[in-house]
Design a binder for these strands. Structure first.
Lengths: 235, 235
DNA sequence: AAGTGGTCTAGACCACCGT
DNA sequence: CGGTGGTCTAGACCACTTC
């Protein structure tokens, strides 16, 4: 990390999650934080901005910084990279790899991923299981020139932990398209629902900081079990 | 407005939307913008940050600021206040008021909206029609002490324009929960779909900048017509 | 090496909240 | 009125990209 404002943000996030401010529901003032962390006001404000964007707090001019109501821990967080494991704490998450191999991009995929047709892609299909019940089906494509190696071990734990910590990928931004459809028969069997039942779908296009697409994924959720939470700030 | 960085952000947003940078797909450098707008670097960077958060551009250290691919204009934008009218440009949006009157908060609503039971609320039920076809059913509750007046006229055009520009409400943040369900019979009739067809649902809790809840809404979308887009930035 | 964004500091003044 | 965030400036140095 080595960047002050991120370290401060992460530290404060930990403290918030640990309930350090639950009694007052209020954070220390900017001035106090400046003293505690021995940095300038701008740096504190940048750190705090992270917490605001992550949905933990809100600021009131002239009054202070307050905790936002705890998000019940049963939602999928749209705005984070942290994956199911970190979103659904207090649940048992398991992953079953249904398929994992290298393919070549066809016309459609090459267009979607902005690459040449024939580009090598990892194709992964996974069934996510929450508290012993099928929860979602996720199909992902990774560009092999950016993610040169993947195996079942990595794919069944946290792919993103691997991409960030081991491969040191600089993930920049993502487009997420959400809609719902009638589920197809094969997926219905996997999720233990009836054909034509609803399914919640997230299509995800993920970019590196330099603007390159490196992943495309399609997640299909059990309609009674999945709820997505998104916290938004205006201003 | 009167705040420099927001004015600059709005100005640049307009220019981006007008296609001013489409040829190069690149924005001027920070230095050029500093000169053009005659402000300090921090102010420019704050303005640019707005554009990043609004999903218009991404920055590459050492290289420049680039346009993000145009969001096709057929999505509902989760991260904006701008409502259907501004999201679905190039479409004809109509609104039919199904119900509008003042009620008193029951146990459930008072809990959801964090107010006393019996608090006066505007209850509004609207059918949104896009290109002459039913698109969504929106049920909203507004606290009457914050939104003292509403009528069919206001409710059938842009409520948010009224809240912001006329009532000068300071809207701060929102929690959105998305899921999908089987549609009920009455809604199915309104949306011209079959009972038990899927429905995409957004539950929206909106807060003023001081942390007060002033609106609760529940939108139920035609599953084949509604797609939600959310652009996310990491870092 | 030059160009361009990213981080950080120090200080000034304004706007809003609560007493 | 004092306390606390919000905006803005000016300048320094670092990190990455591009050639």
């Amino acid at each position: 990390m080595a960047v002050k404002y991120k370290e401060i943000a992460d530290c404060l996030e930990r403290e918030i999650r640990d309930g350090k401010f639950d009694k007052t529901k209020k954070l220390p003032t900017e001035e106090e934080l400046m003293k505690n962390f021995e940095v300038s006001r701008n740096t504190i404000r940048k750190a705090i901005n992270q917490l605001v964007n992550r949905g933990y707090i809100y600021q009131v001019q002239g009054s202070g910084m307050f905790l936002r109501e705890k998000s019940v821990s049963d939602y999928i967080n749209l705005g984070s990279l942290r994956g199911l494991t970190k979103d659904l704490t207090s649940k048992i998450i398991e992953t079953k790899i249904l398929d994992l191999h290298v393919i070549e991009a066809d016309e459609v995929k090459s267009k979607q991923m902005r690459c040449e047709a024939g580009t090598k892609l990892y194709y992964i299909k996974r069934l996510r299981i929450v508290d012993k019940e099928p929860f979602s089906i996720e199909i992902s494509y990774f560009k092999k020139d950016i993610v040169p190696y993947l195996n079942e071990d990595i794919a069944s734990s946290s792919i993103y932990r691997y991409l960030i910590e081991d491969l040191k990928l600089n993930i920049g931004f993502a487009d997420k398209v959400i809609n719902c459809e009638k589920i197809d028969e094969a997926s219905a069997r996997l999720l233990h629902v009836n054909p034509d039942d609803p399914a919640l779908i997230i299509e995800n296009t993920v970019f590196l900081t330099n603007g390159t697409i490196f992943e495309l994924s399609n997640s299909l959720f059990h309609y009674q079990k999945a709820k997505i939470l998104n916290r938004i700030n205006f201003k």
